[in-house]
Amino acid sequence: MRFNLKVPFAEKDQAKKLGARWDAGRKIWYVEGKEDMAPFSGWSPTPHAASVADVQTQQSKVYVGSEYVEQPRVCDCPPWEECDKCRPLSLSSQG
């Protein structure tokens, strides 16, 4: 069974030595197939962290990383192009 971990960047090497692996697609550390989870107990998500994620989802913002906020997409054009739907929301038009 897979267990996701909340490993601070400063402790990534320690987690890696204990057998944690980095999931680049989800940007999260995890362990899989470990019988003894005691060494990883300091990095397991807390119930409070789950409730914070629920609040962030209710605000219709997607939080990636510690402070990055990704706005929901309005259209299907590539991010480097601006169509009529996304032009009013682009950073270049807000300046």
Rank of each mutant, 00 (worst) to 15 (best):
H48R: 12
Q71N: 13
D23E: 12
R26A: 14
P45D: 00
S90T: 12
A38V: 07
A49W: 12
A10G: 02
V31A: 00
S60W: 06
F40T: 05
P8L: 04
V52H: 03
N4M: 02
Q56M: 06
D23V: 05
D36R: 08
V31N: 01
A24W: 11
K17D: 11
V74S: 12
C75E: 11
D54Q: 15
C86V: 08
D36N: 13
P39K: 03
Y63C: 05
G42A: 10
K27A: 14
L18F: 05
C86Y: 07
L18M: 12
Q56W: 00
W22F: 13
R2A: 03
R73L: 13
C75Y: 08
R2H: 00
P72G: 09
K12F: 01
E11M: 08
F3I: 04
A15N: 01
P39N: 06
A10Y: 02
R21W: 00
S44G: 07
R21Q: 07
C86N: 10
G25K: 08
S41H: 02
P39R: 05
R73C: 10
T46D: 05
I28Y: 06
V55M: 13
S66L: 06
W80S: 10
P39A: 06
L18G: 05
Q14M: 08
R87A: 14
E70C: 06
K17R: 11
G65W: 00
Q59P: 03
T57Q: 11
E81Y: 10
G95P: 04
D84K: 15
K16A: 15
G42H: 02
A24P: 15
I28P: 07
V31L: 02
E11F: 05
P79G: 10
P79C: 10
R26F: 14
F9I: 05
Y30I: 15
D76N: 14
P8D: 02
A38F: 03
K61W: 08
A38M: 06
S93I: 07
E82I: 07
C77H: 09
K6R: 05
L5W: 02
E67Y: 09
S41W: 01
Q14H: 10
S90H: 07
Q56T: 01
L91N: 15
K16H: 11
Q58G: 13
S93R: 12
C75M: 13
W43E: 00
C83K: 04
G42T: 00
N4G: 02
C77I: 09
I28T: 14
W29V: 01
K27L: 15
M1G: 13
Y63T: 06
E67Q: 13
G42W: 00
E82R: 14
S44Y: 04
Q71I: 11
S66R: 09
Q71V: 08
T57P: 00
V55R: 10
W29E: 03
D76C: 12
Q94P: 03
K85Y: 07
Y63W: 02
T46V: 02
C75Q: 08
